[in-house]
Amino acid sequence: MQELHVSLDDAQLSTAAQKLHEPLEAQLSSALQRAAELVEQDYHGESATEVGARLLEIAKSSLHPDIAAAFQPDPAELDRAARAVIEASRE
Rank of each mutant, 00 (worst) to 15 (best):
G45F: 00
L8R: 05
D9R: 10
H21R: 13
H21I: 11
E87M: 08
Q2W: 15
S47K: 08
P73K: 02
Q2N: 15
E3I: 11
L56K: 07
T49H: 15
Q72F: 02
E87G: 04
F71E: 13
A82G: 06
S7F: 14
S62V: 10
A26I: 07
P75G: 05
S7E: 11
L32W: 12
L20K: 13
A82N: 04
L56R: 06
Q18F: 03
K60M: 10
P23W: 04
S47F: 01
V85W: 07
A53Y: 07
Q72D: 09
K60G: 05
K60S: 11
E77V: 01
D9S: 12
V85D: 07
L78R: 03
S47T: 12
D79R: 15
E91D: 14
Q12F: 08
A35I: 15
E22I: 01
D9G: 08
Q2A: 14
L4G: 08
A35G: 10
E37K: 12
I67T: 11
R34W: 15
L4A: 11
S7V: 07
A16C: 09
R90T: 14
E40H: 08
Q27M: 12
D74I: 00
D42K: 14
K60T: 04
A59G: 03
L32N: 10
S62D: 11
H21K: 15
A26F: 06
T49N: 15
H44L: 04
A53E: 14
Q12P: 00
S30N: 09
A31W: 06
G52V: 03
L32K: 05
D79E: 15
V51I: 12
A59M: 03
A26D: 07
V51L: 04
A69G: 07
A81F: 00
D10C: 00
A88L: 04
A68Y: 02
V6M: 01
P75H: 07
A81W: 04
Q33V: 01
E3S: 14
L4I: 10
A35E: 08
F71A: 07
I67F: 08
L56M: 02
P65G: 00
A76F: 00
A36Q: 05
A31T: 09
S62R: 14
R54S: 15
Q12I: 03
Q72W: 00
T15S: 13
H64G: 00
L63C: 07
A84D: 08
I86T: 01
A48W: 00
S61V: 01
P65M: 04
A88R: 04
A76P: 04
E46C: 03
P23N: 09
L8K: 09
Q12A: 14
H5M: 11
H5F: 12
L63D: 00
A84C: 06
L56P: 02
L13A: 09
A69D: 15
K60N: 04
H44P: 00
E57G: 05
A88N: 03
I58P: 09
A11D: 10
A88P: 05
E25G: 01
Q27R: 14
Q12Y: 09
E3V: 15
Y43V: 06
Q2K: 15
T49V: 11
E77R: 03
E87I: 02
S29Y: 05
A11L: 12
D10P: 13
A53M: 07
Q12H: 07
Q41F: 13
L38H: 14
P65S: 06
Q18N: 06
P73A: 03
A84T: 09
